[in-house]
């Protein structure tokens, strides 16, 4: 008899205690209701990764949850505390439709004709900046200054899609776009000339010195080496060695060096070595 009474009391207490029953899964930014059992007044807590809400509710009635309370994706805790104690349930909020792309394109400058040199990484987010974990197709479009564009559709994995592509032989800007649905993020990368090819110098005698200049500097694909690139001239004569680092200006590096008697003049740019010329005495 005593045991039966205890069971009845426990059942009555549980009824007043109130359980919360949220849906198993909810989409971010969409309102819904959490059903409850029991009766009486209770404090309701909604605890999410980025938000905590508290309000007074009646147990036994549905608790409406506003769309603004479920913007962040992740695990949520719904807790109801009534006179008999607290009860809780967990549920997940999933990201909404893809809406934004964070797009990383590297490097911002790349040498022409380099394999797998351009790296593109796209993170797919919904409108609340939740990573979209379901696979979606990210369209990467590579549009060089000259030549046909390249299309690369890539499926995302846990919110990220990436690809690599080679640079083309012509220098200049290359536009790369990452697209997911309506979201489109363009970036521009500069393709720059490679090392100098056939680095050659010539010397002209002036009244007191020798004027040394390079032929117009180009890489092996015919792209002009950019102005400002350093060309190192070395001259060895009877008085010793003379060196000068000269920046290319208007496609040519040029300098004037005093020469004492016979001299040998050579040229280099970075790790590229050019021709060597010999000058006789008489200056």
């Amino acid at each position: 008899m005593l045991r039966l009474t205890a069971c009845l009391l426990l059942l009555m207490r549980l009824a007043a205690f109130g359980e919360v029953h949220p849906p198993a899964q909810v989409t971010a930014g969409k309102g819904f209701s959490i059903s409850t059992t029991g009766s009486g007044d209770a404090s309701f807590y909604l605890i999410s990764p980025g938000h905590v809400a508290k309000r007074e509710v009646k147990l036994g009635q549905d608790i409406p949850v506003d769309a603004s309370d479920v913007k962040k994706a992740g695990r949520y805790l719904a807790i109801a505390c009534g006179s008999g104690g607290c009860n809780s349930a967990a549920f997940y909020v999933m990201a909404a439709e893809p809406d934004k792309v964070s797009f990383f394109l590297h490097p911002s400058r790349v040498r022409v004709k380099s394999n797998d040199a351009i790296n593109a990484t796209a993170f797919v987010f919904d409108q609340f900046y939740n990573l979209v974990l379901t696979p979606v197709t990210v369209d990467f479009k590579v549009i060089p200054k000259t030549g046909p564009p390249i299309d690369r559709p890539i499926k995302s994995n846990l919110g990220v899609a990436w690809m690599r592509v080679a640079s083309t032989p012509k220098q200049g800007p290359v536009k790369v776009i990452a697209e997911v649905g309506k979201a489109s993020e363009p970036r521009v990368i500069q393709q720059v000339a490679s090392d100098a090819c056939n680095l050659r110098i010539k010397a002209t005698r002036t009244a007191k010195a020798v004027l040394i200049e390079t032929d117009p500097l180009r890489d092996c694909s015919g792209n002009a080496i950019p102005d400002g690139t350093i060309v190192s001239f070395t001259e060895i004569d009877g008085k010793g060695k003379t060196t000068v680092d000269v920046p290319i200006k208007k496609g040519i590096a040029r300098t004037q060096l005093p020469v004492n008697g016979r001299a040998k003049i050579s040229v280099a740019s970075g790790v590229v070595i050019g021709n060597e010329i010999s000058l006789g005495g008489g200056l």
């Binding site: 990383f104 590297h106 490097p107 790296n119 990484t121 993170f123 994995n157 846990l158 990220v160 990436w162 690599r164």
Partner: peptide, 9 residues
Amino acid sequence: FFYSPDGGE
């Protein structure tokens, strides 16, 4: 599981 080619993410 993912390390971007430029080491940024």
